[in-house]
Amino acid sequence: FACQWLNAHFEVNPDCSVSRAEMYSEYLSTCSKLARGGILTSTGFYKCLRTVFPNHTVKRVEDSSSNGQAHIHVVGVKRR
């Protein structure tokens, strides 16, 4: 389900990036709304992400508004 969900909601775009945590959060929200069992852990979800978008990269984005915490963004992917 996770791989199908990724294909339905995201697409390849080399000029874009999406927060990896936001992607997983949206996946969890969809699973909750659909009352799905067998929800992937974040590790399983990221493995699926690598399968669906094998050419993506990740980058660390520093967020000055959150006490220097960094966010991981998936580069080469955008929301549909």
Rank of each mutant, 00 (worst) to 15 (best):
L40P: 06
W5R: 01
A8T: 06
G44H: 13
V61P: 07
H73K: 14
Y24P: 00
T51F: 05
T30L: 10
T57M: 04
G38A: 08
Y24I: 03
Q4Y: 07
M23T: 02
S32L: 06
N7C: 08
V74W: 11
A2M: 03
L6S: 04
S64F: 11
G44L: 09
V61Y: 15
S25C: 11
N55K: 04
R60T: 13
C48Q: 12
N7F: 02
S17N: 02
V18L: 08
H73S: 07
D15P: 05
I39P: 12
E11R: 04
R36M: 10
T57S: 09
H9T: 08
N55I: 15
H56C: 04
G44D: 05
G44K: 12
V58Q: 12
N7M: 03
K47T: 08
R80S: 12
A35F: 04
N7P: 02
V52Q: 11
A21P: 11
H71Y: 15
R20C: 06
Q69N: 15
V74C: 04
T41D: 14
R36K: 15
G76L: 01
S66E: 15
E22C: 06
T30Q: 15
Q4M: 06
V75Q: 11
S29F: 03
F53Q: 00
Q69S: 10
A70H: 04
E22H: 15
D63H: 07
V77H: 00
A8P: 00
G44Y: 07
N67W: 11
S17C: 08
F10N: 02
T30K: 15
L40I: 14
A70D: 05
S29L: 10
N7V: 06
A2E: 07
F45D: 00
V77Q: 01
T57N: 12
N7I: 02
R36I: 03
G38W: 03
G44V: 08
S65E: 07
H9E: 15
S29H: 13
Y46F: 03
K47N: 13
T30P: 02
G76W: 01
H9R: 08
S42E: 08
C31D: 07
S19Y: 10
V18F: 03
G37P: 08
Q4E: 15
S17Q: 05
F53R: 01
H71D: 10
N55D: 10
I72Y: 06
G37M: 02
E26V: 05
F45E: 01
I72E: 14
V18Q: 09
R36A: 14
F10R: 00
V52N: 13
V52Y: 01
Y24V: 02
Y27G: 01
N55Q: 03
T51W: 05
T30W: 06
Y24L: 05
N55V: 10
S17D: 03
F53D: 00
R50L: 13
G76C: 02
V18C: 11
L28K: 12
S17H: 02
V75E: 04
M23V: 07
V74M: 12
G38C: 07
G44P: 08
T51D: 09
P54Y: 03
A21I: 02
T51L: 13
L34P: 11
W5Y: 14
T51E: 04
V18T: 08
G76K: 01
L28I: 09
G37E: 03
K33P: 08
D15F: 02
V18K: 04
P14Q: 13
N7Y: 06
I72L: 11
K59W: 05
K47Q: 09
H56Q: 06
Q4C: 09
V58R: 07
N67H: 05
D63Y: 13
F1G: 10
C16M: 15
L49F: 11
V52R: 03
H9L: 03
C48M: 02
S19C: 08
R36C: 08
R60P: 08
E11K: 03
K59S: 13
D15N: 01
E26Q: 06
T51K: 02
Y27M: 00
N13P: 00
Y27S: 01
F53S: 00
S32K: 14
V58W: 15
E11W: 01
K59D: 15
N7G: 12
S29V: 07
A35N: 12
T41S: 14
A70S: 09
S66W: 02
S25H: 13
G76S: 03
Y24N: 01
A8C: 05
K59V: 15
R20M: 05
L34V: 12
L34I: 15
P14N: 04
Y27E: 00
T30H: 11
K47A: 09
T57V: 02
H73T: 11
V77F: 01
S32M: 05
A35S: 09
A21N: 09
L40R: 09
W5L: 01
H71N: 15
C48Y: 07
C31H: 13
R50I: 12
V61R: 11
R60Y: 05
C31I: 10
G44S: 12
N67G: 12
A70V: 11
T30N: 15
Y24E: 11
V12T: 15
V61D: 04
D15G: 06
N13E: 10
V74H: 01
V52K: 06
G38Q: 14
D63S: 02
K47L: 06
Y27L: 00
A8V: 04
A70T: 14
T51R: 12
H56P: 01
H71P: 12
E26I: 10
H73G: 07
V77P: 00
L40V: 11
L34K: 15
C31Q: 03
T41Y: 07
T43S: 01
L34G: 14
S29D: 13
N7W: 05
R50Q: 14
N67M: 05
T41W: 04
S29W: 03
E22L: 09
S19T: 12
T30C: 02
A70Y: 05
T41N: 11
P54I: 06
H9P: 00
L28H: 13
S64P: 14
C48F: 04
E22V: 08
A70E: 13
T57P: 10
V18W: 02
C3V: 02
S66A: 15
V52M: 05
V12L: 09
Y46S: 12
L34M: 07
K33W: 03
A2I: 06
R20L: 08
V74E: 01
N67L: 08
S17F: 10
S65T: 08
H71Q: 14
S25V: 08
H71G: 11
D63Q: 15
F10D: 00
D63N: 05
H73C: 14
T41Q: 04
S25E: 13
F53H: 00
H56L: 11
V18M: 05
H56W: 02
V75W: 09
N7S: 12
A2R: 00
F1M: 15
V12D: 15
L34Q: 06
Y24Q: 02
R60W: 13
S25P: 03
G38E: 15
R50G: 08
S29R: 09
G76V: 00
T51A: 12
R20W: 09
R36W: 06
A21C: 14
V12Q: 15
S65C: 02
L40C: 08
E22Q: 04
A70W: 07
R50D: 06
V12C: 08
G38R: 13
H9S: 14
G38D: 09
V61F: 11
M23I: 07
S42N: 02
D15T: 05
R50T: 11
E62I: 15
Q69M: 10
L49W: 01
A2D: 03
V61W: 09
S65R: 12
S25Q: 13
D63A: 10
V58S: 05
A2S: 13
I72A: 13
V74L: 10
S42C: 02
Q69T: 08
A35M: 06
D15H: 04
